[in-house]
Design a protein around this nucleic acid. Structure first.
Lengths: 240, 240
DNA sequence: ACGATTTGTGAACCGAGTTCATGGATTGTT
DNA sequence: AACAATCCATGAACTCGGTTCACAAATCGT
């Protein structure tokens, strides 16, 4: 059965090639410019071969997003080890997400595109699940921090709200700020600059509103900045 | 020149017809199913006629979104009259937005689609500005409430943050929750139900974190519910 | 060595947005 | 009122890109 294995490996390697190349093309030419025939040509395969791996273009895009999400999720696995209090760990999650978004602006746009109802419906059940599964560690990291915070008494065990639902707040805040920041012209039209800096202050307001200790006053810019620097330094050190 | 005026009116009426019909078709068959030729046929005009009004399909969609946004924005104009404290007025904004989103689920999906970088680029400068202008009263309402709250002393005049940037918090929270809630399967995968109920609690946490008086503890579900009911009742009464 | 089966190919297909040559209606002029 | 000039609605034709599929090549099993 050795040859069978080899064929499987080769097939998987080819799929990886398609995904890598697609990612590269998106990064250089943008999402809009990606064409199935161009991608196939760039990989030196026929167009039809692509369709032996992906049910549709959306499916391919979902695969690209899944691969990037897996890389992203990797960063959250060692999070509990960080020598930080639970609240600072939560900030570490937000900052990690923020930095990742800055480094991979296309990923957020792609996710936004894929999560559009009309597009989501075009993706095969299998790949949808793969994408959600890839993101699971991120959600787990958030829930985990909330749970540890409740255990340690940093965060009151709020009523009628699970750890996941608690994490939904910063998640939605993050997501919303990303999508507003990505809409060119939108925030500029309202004289709003540096939306991502404000995200951090609103994040602290949200956490403080839930009485997550030690409280950070969102209205003390110097304190907020110092805390950001401190957490960034720990992240830097841990992940080089 | 009376005939000239009449022609202008007729032209505008036709444009309105196109927009209305497009909205109707999107509502019944979904965004994905909208076809330029079908729309033209439904209006009993030739396909080419559409293109004398709209530069592209995206342009047409932007026009639909603009019209809906104008209707939506109308609701915010009388907001300062409401017999409510500033913090409750802010809640009124969130609830109004929430109710509108529930009643017009397509609008949020459409906006999400239009604000996608790739799509946004396809819309004519003119219509992009029209869409942003249409949304201006909403942003103004938010900034207005923040300013009144600061004047009345309900909200500390935070440092290094404008009224617009202050309003960005609830806006992003709202936007993010909408887009998460609209992604079928996403929240369900994490065992999260009723995201929009949680939005309100997180909203209170955010406001309380900024020390907006009178504070509402997000962790008192009965208090949160009562406040929601109270504000809803006032909205009901004012707008019938 | 040879037939059966699987896999890769890329030209053809198809659907939907967009364009444009055409003809009919409207306006302005004599 | 007749005619020329202009405007503009028309919808068939065009374009473009995702998807399919008949065919060929390669691999596998006997």
């Amino acid at each position: 059965m050795g040859t069978e294995d080899r064929k499987q490996r080769e097939r998987q390697a080819r799929e990886q090639l398609f995904i890598d190349k697609a990612h590269e093309l998106i990064r250089t030419d943008g999402l809009l410019a990606l064409q199935m025939s161009k991608l196939a040509a760039a990989c030196e395969y026929a167009t039809g071969t692509l369709y032996q791996h992906f049910a549709s273009k959306e499916d391919l895009l979902a695969a690209v997003a899944t691969r990037t999400t897996i890389q992203h999720a990797e960063r959250f696995r060692r999070l509990p080890e960080l020598p930080l209090g639970t609240r600072s760990q939560m900030l570490a999650i937000v900052l990690t997400d923020l930095d990742f978004a800055t480094a991979n602006p296309d990923h957020y746009r792609l996710m936004q595109y894929l999560l559009t109802e009309a597009v989501w419906a075009q993706i095969s059940q299998e790949r949808r699940e793969a994408l959600l599964t890839a993101a699971q560690p991120i959600s787990d990291a958030v829930s985990g921090v909330v749970e540890r915070a409740r255990e340690k008494g940093d965060l009151p065990a709020a009523r009628e709200i699970s750890a996941e639902e608690m994490g939904l707040g910063p998640w939605a805040l993050n997501q919303g700020m990303q999508s507003l920041a990505n809409a060119r012209g939108l925030l500029e039209a309202y004289d709003i600059g540096q939306p991502l800096d404000h995200l951090i202050r609103h994040f602290h307001a949200l956490m403080t509103g839930w009485r997550w200790e030690p409280r950070v006053d969102p209205d003390e810019p110097s304190v907020v900045r110092a805390e950001t620097e401190r957490v960034r330094a720990v992240l830097q050190e841990t992940f080089q």
